Simulated scan of single mutants.
Amino acid sequence: MIRTKRVLIADDHKMFCEGLVGALEPRYRVVGMVHRGSDVLDEIERLSPDVALVDVSMPGQSGIDVARRMKKLGWRTKVIILTMHDDALFAVEALRADASGFVLKHSPRKVLLTAIEKALEGESYMDPAMAKKLKAYSRAGSGDDKATADEQVAPGVQLTQRQREVLRHLVLGSTTAETADALGLSVKAIEFHRGRLKKLLGVSTTAGLIHYTISHHIFE
């Protein structure tokens, strides 16, 4: 029998937490709710959920701080950041903290469910609405002195046009299958490119690839 995946909800708004329970069950089992950021890590350690949905701004400790601590501790629980703020800087910080997902609270239920599914599959997910803002953010940060794509990556590393296209789709929140369809490639080819990119850019996760792409403005 397949075990129902366990989810912890961490948000200082109790009514919002209760609403999430209704949105998640019975597909997922909500094992607990936390209303103070300072209590989140203790509850994750005690309950060992598969996924923790954590508000970006909570009393005591932010969701991004929780993700950073989880990364250092090496715990297996996947952290998805929830927020009502559609500020690209929050998303960038979440990526830097190696969060598995970033979802806006006002997005449709299916966006959150997709984020959880992707996290459980070991992938990262960016709310499509935020992905658009990230693209604009990356372009705005480049200014008039924007370097060419080959100049923006690590010294000695040159990315092909295909590799840059794969990176762009990652930032936009496309799934592996969607990227393959858009580029006319097989799913295995996209997975190969993604693995190759991780080695080239010196990162170990998809979130790391997304952060690298944003911070180095690797867009045409």
Rank of each mutant, 00 (worst) to 15 (best):
M1P: 08
R3I: 09
R3G: 06
T4V: 11
K5C: 00
D12P: 07
H13F: 15
P26S: 10
P26C: 12
V30A: 06
V34L: 10
E43R: 14
E43F: 12
V54M: 09
M58K: 08
S62T: 12
S62F: 11
A67E: 05
A67K: 04
K71W: 13
L73Y: 08
W75V: 09
R76G: 08
R76I: 09
T77S: 11
V79Y: 02
I80M: 00
A91W: 00
V92E: 06
E93H: 13
A94Q: 02
L95G: 04
R96Y: 14
A99N: 03
G101Y: 01
P108K: 05
V111G: 01
L113A: 03
A115W: 00
I116E: 03
L120E: 00
E121P: 01
G122D: 05
Y125N: 06
A129F: 12
A131E: 05
K133Q: 13
G141L: 12
G143V: 14
K146D: 08
Q158C: 10
Q161M: 14
V166L: 10
L172A: 10
S174K: 12
A177V: 14
E178G: 11
A180W: 06
A182Q: 11
L183V: 11
G184N: 12
G184F: 15
L185D: 03
K188Y: 09
F192H: 15
R196P: 01
L200W: 02
L201G: 00
G202T: 05
T206C: 02
G208T: 01
Y212H: 06
T213L: 06
S215R: 07
H217K: 08
